[in-house]
Design a protein around this nucleic acid. Structure first.
Lengths: 245, 245
DNA sequence: TGGCATACATGACAAAAGTCATATTTTATT
DNA sequence: AATAAAATATGACTTTTGTCATGTATGCCA
């Protein structure tokens, strides 16, 4: 992972230069996260101590087991939160995108992160040091409540996700994931293909199945006219039928 | 579910009588929950407004979709947190026992509960009204942090659980659940059988499989000498081998 | 104590999903 | 543009898991 501690402690110049271009106060993304509860003054402080980061497609923001020194606010891009199992298979637990905070759970629990975060496309993230976040917890109750509500939402999603994994067939799970990608991240205007591009292997990793099974089912959906495939691109052509699988 | 609002608003006498027998200050169970952060004064208040409840084996504490007017602190007993799927199958998401709070997520998110809670044996729970809990959130930061840490822990567990469900075989999941029941809830002294008694159907519901598959695998484990079965009782005889499945 | 209901158990078969081999296509690189 | 490497696709087969039928044990209650 990028060596955040190093950059944050020593590269004051770089940090400063980057910050000129991105005052937190004007950052629209902030409005969608728990940070929306911060006061003007708190935002000014935040602007000074944050570090803007660019992470290239395929690179990790952090890896399972690392200790974080703060949280990341996603300004742009999408990443996958993953976990390796004993066989070396990668399970994608969820996708996280613009406006969300990464690593809050780890900070609160004072534990290493439980999941890896890997960029699915080029990302821009702001790193906010631990001390700053903890200060907000102490002085801004609304912020605390926002974080708590977010985590409660995550917990509900995780429980629901669990039931899906435990009770539904691979086919149903694939249909569900395709609809989720469609509804959450949208489609390209020109060709109506899903905006988030995952390899077949990654798609299989979201569903918890073998890559071949995933490919086979995509072919089947294609033949049945539920979706259209053109190279890596997936276009949902009959979302109603997909929903009824 | 028991009509909590009714009891709490009107049955002052009953509440009082019960409270004489159970001051929160002396309640050992409290020490294991987020409530341990409360001051003496806060505990005295709590004693006055809580309601002690007895819930019989098989009865619900609350059902999926209900709106709660507070949280439940489990004084004794174990319950299953479940969700019904479209086929009417019951998925057991987790087991909750002595010392834990039920319904916090719902209260924070201001949403109906996402899971049903059903007693696996006779339970004793204290109902704490919403207003009281919210007061603690506002006046006691340590309490807030405790709740937050608990929920973060739940989230981690849920994510891990998800990976297990998605990636492991039914056989592995059964082995894992048996070890979990053993390690978390312990065994009976006399016959070394698992303390928590689940029907085959419930066990299947924890694993996310058909009851017959669950029974078949238990037989197999029995024949291979990993476990011993005597009626409903399950005795783990070779936990090392079970762990290596 | 007998009979009924329920839970547990097992066989036979079907369906779902995984594995391995091997094409074929796409993408990256020189 | 040529080639190599990676990703996608498909067939053949095995293993896992689910379903339905049916039998057996267990507990409960009049």
């Amino acid at each position: 992972m990028p060596n955040i501690e190093y950059l944050c402690d020593t590269n004051k110049t770089l940090t400063g230069v980057l910050n000129v271009m991105s005052k937190c106060e004007q950052c629209i993304v902030r409005q969608f996260s728990s940070l929306k509860a911060l006061t003007k003054e708190e935002l000014l402080n935040l602007s000074d101590c944050k570090t803007l980061y660019t992470i290239k497609k395929g690179e990790p923001v952090f890896n399972e087991g690392e200790k974080l020194q703060g949280v990341f606010c996603i300004k742009d891009g999408v990443c996958k939160m993953t976990k390796l199992n004993a066989n070396g298979n990668e399970q994608i637990v969820k996708l996280i995108s613009k406006g969300e905070l990464l690593g809050q759970r780890s900070l609160i629990s004072e534990e290493p992160v439980n999941l890896s975060a890997v960029a699915l496309d080029d990302m821009q993230v702001c790193f906010i040091p631990k001390a700053e976040v903890m200060k907000f917890f102490n002085q801004n109750n609304q912020f605390s409540m926002n974080v708590m509500r977010t985590i409660c939402g995550d917990l509900k999603e995780a429980d629901d996700h669990l039931v899906t994994m435990a009770q539904k067939s691979v086919k149903q799970r694939l249909a569900e994931v395709l609809l989720y990608l469609h509804d959450t991240f949208g489609i390209n205007e020109e060709d109506k293909s899903l905006m988030v591009k995952l390899s077949r292997e990654e798609l299989a990793g979201m569903i918890g199945t073998a890559t071949e099974s995933c490919i086979r089912l995509l072919s089947e959906f294609n033949k049945s006219g539920l979706i259209a495939l053109s190279g890596k691109k997936i276009i949902i052509t009959d979302s109603d039928k997909l929903r009824k699988i």
